[in-house]
């Protein structure tokens, strides 16, 4: 019984990973920025689906809401203020391709020393000692350990995170302040 479930999960995972790679390659090829942004939404959503299979539902729905939702809206807003076409790359692509291939090969060589997928003895899963998972409900009265760590054990980090978002919001406001005033009449003509 459990092996059929395993097989199903592996099949779905293989399908998702293939789609992820195909979508990423399509983004590389796409010269229409509007289509590229839409493909990015699909890419984020596929990533979120994979996270769900990897036992991270909290991350999956954040990625689906923030990565596929808010990011796409921000990118579309930028396209409306700028342009939707990108120029054909004029330079030869051999240099970047070589750099990427070499870097990728080195990284793949590096993974040989990594703990194998799902290994319960992997350093990431043995330190700190996993007993805190059982103690969480007693300590914080929340069964979801991710929420407990985020909101209580490491609450200061979450406060820091909100400071980062606040700073980013202020930066965006300062950058775009008065942009309408400066924009000349023919400036925004290329919006979709």
């Amino acid at each position: 019984m459990s092996s059929t479930v395993d097989l199903e999960v592996q099949t779905v995972t293989a399908l998702l990973l293939t789609l992820l790679c195909v979508t990423a390659l399509a983004v590389v090829r796409m010269r229409n920025l509007w289509a590229a942004v839409m493909l990015m939404g699909i890419y984020s959503f596929l990533g979120a689906s994979w996270m769900l299979l990897l036992d991270a539902p909290d991350v999956a729905f954040t990625e689906a809401a923030v990565g596929a939702g808010i990011s796409t809206i921000l990118a579309l807003a930028t396209l409306a203020l700028t342009t939707t076409r990108s120029k054909q790359p004029a330079r030869s692509q051999a240099g970047p391709l070589a750099i990427v291939t070499v870097t990728g090969a080195v990284l793949m060589y590096g993974t040989v020393d990594m703990p194998r997928f799902g290994d319960p003895e992997a350093p990431a899963s043995t330190y700190p000692h996993p007993s805190y998972v059982e103690r969480t409900e007693h300590d914080i009265h929340i069964p979801n350990v991710v929420t407990a760590v985020l909101g209580s054990y490491r609450g200061y980090d979450t406060l820091g995170e909100t400071v980062v978002i606040f700073t980013a919001g202020i930066s965006v406001l300062l950058l775009l302040q008065g942009s309408r005033r400066r924009t000349r009449d023919e400036g925004g003509g290329e919006s979709p």
Partner: peptide, 8 residues
């Protein structure tokens, strides 16, 4: 997230 997955 891949690193965090534990078999079973």
């Amino acid at each position: 997230i891949t690193i965090g997955k534990v078999r079973g």
